[in-house]
Simulated assay, not measured.
Amino acid sequence: MKAWSSTVAALLWICSLTGAASAAGVSDCPSDERATYVCNVRNAEDLVAIRDSAWVIAGRLTDPPTQGGFYLIDASSGAASPVAPDFKGPKASIYSECPGAPGKDEFAAHGIAIRYGAGSKHELYAVNHNGRESIEIFDLDMSARRPALIWKGCVLVPPAVMPNSVAPVPSGGFVVTSFGIRTDAQTYQKAMAGGISGFVAKWAPGAGWSEVAGTQFSANNGVAVSEDGKRLFVTGWGDRKLHVISLGEIPYTHQAVELGALHPDNIRATPDGRLLIAGQAATPAEIFACTSLPTCEVGFKVLAVDPRSLSVEPLLDESGSRAFGGASAAIMVGNEVWVGTFSGSRIARYRLRE
């Protein structure tokens, strides 16, 4: 990890959640009374179920970060393995300002998102903190037996942006949450106290970066965009709320949904259109303490939110254990909720009660 000031470095432990102590992968992680597990996946902080396939892709944030990248998981068998993208291809013309592909050991995926295209060709976006603060863009080719990732460009984030999650917008480009402000020496203290500390930035081809109006919240974390591109969903890790903001409208509108005793993390859409929000049910100090442990043991919750009515349905409320805790992302895979963590060696699989 590159050098940071002590304050910003401390915040990065939380906002990008890369800093759990390194540990050997779990070679055998049998089911328990609540969950089954995908084993040997270190710090699968974000998860995406690839549409119309049996594959799940996870960000691979590890310590040391030279081991980072992605995991591919076969949802039918639960088998997981690291995947190495092809970084040898040329960059696309819309990323002309990208200095080039990251070098060896200069990439570790944090927040991830997919823009779906026609047929088997899609794009994958990944937040990268290793070597540079950037959004790295890949072609995701689903035409072969195993998905393939081919690097096609990058966008370096502005000096103030502390990138966490990313989501494509229908008109082109993407939005990125900034958990804190890298140029603010007090940003860590503000985030931990639930004060205003972050925002959402938008990048558009040809126009570059801009701040999305009305998105200055507390520790902006997860982000999702409605299919029509008119609404933005942002979790405030510090204020424990889901924020819903109009996108591209002046004046903007804003609604806030209280999420209770939860520090919400990533957002993922379900096949039926709801939003899954996973997060940690503990104090900031307890969550921060996980960064020195091989497995976070704090409790966590998973909520399902109707994007229209904004009604909230609790799906999981777990105490955390030596096996698994500190949830940071949740997805639906069949009738199971799969849960990733920023600190641990497993993905937990919970079967929903019928």
Rank of each mutant, 00 (worst) to 15 (best):
S197I: 02
W151D: 07
K91L: 10
N128D: 14
S120T: 15
D141R: 15
R132D: 00
V176N: 02
V155M: 05
D86V: 05
G206I: 04
E133C: 01
N164C: 03
A185R: 13
I94Q: 14
G103R: 15
T183A: 00
K104P: 04
S178C: 04
E133F: 12
D184S: 03
P99M: 11
V155Q: 10
S165Q: 10
G103N: 10
I137M: 14
A167W: 13
P99C: 10
G180A: 05
A84V: 14
E97G: 06
V166A: 06
A148Q: 12
T187W: 05
A118V: 11
N128P: 12
A167C: 08
D105N: 15
K91W: 04
G119D: 15
R145C: 09
P168K: 09
A126E: 03
G194R: 08
V200S: 02
I150S: 15
P168F: 11
H122A: 10
E97A: 11
G117Y: 06
I135H: 03
A160L: 00
K152D: 10
P90T: 12
A193M: 07
E133A: 09
A118L: 12
F199D: 01
L149D: 08
P170K: 05
A191N: 04
R182A: 02
K152N: 09
A148C: 04
G172Y: 13
V176S: 00
G172A: 03
V157A: 02
Y125D: 01
L124H: 11
A84N: 14
R132P: 00
L149K: 05
G117L: 07
A92L: 14
I150L: 15
P170Q: 10
A204I: 11
V127Q: 02
G117T: 11
R146C: 08
A118Q: 15
N164I: 01
G194K: 10
A84I: 14
I114G: 08
D184E: 06
C98I: 04
P163G: 01
G194P: 04
R182P: 00
A101S: 13
G117E: 07
G153T: 06
F174C: 09
K121H: 13
P102R: 05
P159G: 01
N164K: 00
V176A: 01
G131D: 04
G194N: 08
K152Q: 12
S134V: 02
G195E: 15
A101P: 12
P168G: 03
I181N: 04
A144E: 10
P90C: 04
T177G: 02
D86F: 07
G198K: 01
A92G: 10
F174Q: 07
P168C: 03
A92E: 15
I196C: 01
V127W: 00
K202L: 07
M162F: 02
W203H: 06
A204N: 06
D141A: 14
G180S: 02
R182N: 00
P163E: 02
A101Q: 08
K104F: 09
R145F: 08
P102Q: 08
A108M: 15
A109G: 05
D105C: 05
P99I: 08
